[in-house]
């Protein structure tokens, strides 16, 4: 019988893997930049205040992981299953990665980009979309790349679980500090 649902039923484990991948990417970026910031905090904050500061950063990372995960679910819902749901692991990881790269580029070059005229912005955006599509097609078709992404997702699960756990501790600390 023909499958009439818009997208393939995705297991809970697949969702967990996708979310932990988001958490790994977001938290790794946050913790890397936090590590460079902390020496200046050590000069002026107490240990308890530093823990508080870290907690805010982690809480924000948790919220951001959830936002990116929601975007992935939304895209999964909107796109035909053959383009996304069939390879949910792979595509969600790629999408999270691309979102983060775009965010980093925009953060660093925003002031330059806003000086471009709309025609240039449109051309660059179309070019970026084209590159993203090519990446998706390549990773979906080339088995070696495909395998690499799966390997990354597998390894990300443990790290992702640890990150989510410390994010939740951070959230509890933020709530406690503001009671």
């Amino acid at each position: 019988m023909r499958d009439t649902s818009r997208f393939t039923k995705i297991s809970k484990r697949a969702y967990a893997l996708a979310f932990s991948t988001c958490a790994v990417l977001v938290n790794s970026w946050a913790l890397f930049n936090l590590a460079v910031t902390i020496p200046s905090w050590i000069l002026q904050l107490t240990v308890w205040e530093i823990l508080g500061g870290i907690s805010y950063v982690l809480t924000f990372a948790l919220i951001e992981s959830l936002v990116i995960f929601t975007i992935i679910l939304l895209i999964n819902f909107l796109l035909p299953k053959k383009y996304f749901s069939d390879k949910f692991f792979l595509n969600s990881t790629l999408l999270a990665l691309i979102l983060l790269v775009v965010a980093i580029l925009l953060q660093n070059y925003f002031e330059e980009i806003i000086t471009w005229n709309p025609g240039v912005i449109l051309r660059v955006s179309l070019f970026a979309v084209l590159i993203i599509v090519i990446i998706f097609v390549l990773v979906n078709r080339v088995k070696k790349l495909n395998a690499r992404v799966y390997a990354f997702v597998d390894r990300a699960l443990v790290l992702g679980t640890i990150y989510i756990f410390i994010d939740i501790l951070g959230l509890i600390n933020v709530i406690t500090r503001n009671l």
Binding site: W29, A30, L34, T37, S40, G53, V57, F60, I104, Q107
Partner: peptide, 22 residues
């Protein structure tokens, strides 16, 4: 203090947030 690190980043460093900072 942490808002500065999350949204702006210290001196020439990147903020710790990706989407929030954007």
């Amino acid at each position: 203090v942490s808002e500065k690190a999350i949204m702006l980043g210290e001196d020439k460093l990147n903020p710790t947030s990706l989407l929030g900072a954007l």
